[in-house]
């Protein structure tokens, strides 16, 4: 292995490679989260929230499509949005570990969404100024729905935290349990150094994210774990939890069973 590799993971990137990596960070987060949220369909606590969560899943998968379509354009050849979603294996996915965590109960799913939605809000808001036009356009197109997601999940955190004793206890546990998966969102990655700063480097979002999380948790009468607590990482390098294997096995089963078919 050359000097650009560390522990089996690629560390040095050309500008072109870094661009693709960055797009996969965004696209894979959106797809896997959308896939997870879609499992709530017909299983929500009340009909109105079934509709809301399906709508959110639609937004994420819609955004994933835009990003994959653009990646397919860059890659050319036979690559399509579907070949990227259905014919890559776990080691090629670049989503954060947070989004592949199981749905759990409503509070678990809400907290997972709250962490990533708040992150996405600051990320996509800043990406509207990305010098790379395709990303700026997608960010501009998505920011309204992302702002809505962030508001929706924050409101639920407050409702559950400041609801009943039972809901308070449950959602506090969700926060404590999911916290170690949130830190990875702000992990530094070598691609950030290759790309110009308008490709927002994720670590730069941490303080805004933490302030917002504090504000919401305070309204929810919930406690926040230490911000320097140990964080699990690896997703951005293709090192995933076992959950992703099942998510992909389910999602990819049909196209892989009938690779010659078009749908």
């Amino acid at each position: 292995m050359g000097g650009g590799w560390l522990n089996g993971v690629k560390r040095d990137f050309t500008k072109e490679e870094a661009l693709e990596e960055y797009l996969f960070f965004l696209a894979d987060d959106a797809l896997i989260l959308g896939q997870q949220l879609s499992k709530w369909c017909s299983a929500g606590p009340v009909l109105e929230q079934d509709i809301a969560i399906i709508n959110t899943a639609l937004d994420h998968i819609g955004r994933a499509r835009l990003l994959y379509q653009h990646l397919a354009e860059i890659k050319g050849g036979a690559t399509t949005e579907d070949s990227l979603a259905y014919f890559r294996d776990h080691m090629d996915f670049r989503n954060a570990l947070l989004v592949e965590q199981p749905n759990g109960h409503w509070g678990d799913s809400i907290v997972r969404s709250f962490f990533i939605d708040t992150f996405n809000f600051y990320l996509y808001d800043a990406l509207r100024n990305c010098t790379y036009a395709p990303i700026a356009e997608i960010a501009e197109k998505s920011i309204k729905e992302i702002a809505y997601h962030a508001q929706w999940s924050a409101e639920w955190v407050v409702r559950l935290g400041d609801g009943t004793e039972e809901s308070h206890g449950k959602v506090q546990k969700s926060i404590d349990d999911l916290w170690m998966w949130a830190g990875e969102l702000f992990e530094s990655a070598p691609v950030f150094e290759v790309l110009d700063p308008s490709f927002v480097a994720f670590p730069t979002l941490k303080s805004a994210w933490l302030n917002k999380v504090d504000e919401v948790l305070q309204m929810a009468t919930l406690a926040r774990p230490e911000d320097d607590a140990w964080a699990q990482t690896g997703g951005r390098y293709g090192i995933h939890s076992a959950h992703l294997g099942y998510i992909l096995a389910e999602m990819q089963s049909l196209p892989r069973t009938y690779p010659d078919a078009t749908w």
Binding site: L31, Q35, S38, K39, C41, S42, I51, I54, N55, A57, L58, I61, G62, A64, R65, Y68, E81, D82, A85, Y86, E250, M251, S253, L254, P255, Y258, A261, W263
Partner: peptide
């Protein structure tokens, strides 16, 4: 969760919604 294309997944989600 098993729709065979992203487009088909979106259409099905929208339908169930």
């Amino acid at each position: 969760t098993r729709a065979p294309s992203l487009r088909a997944k979106l259409i099905l989600l929208a339908k169930v919604q």
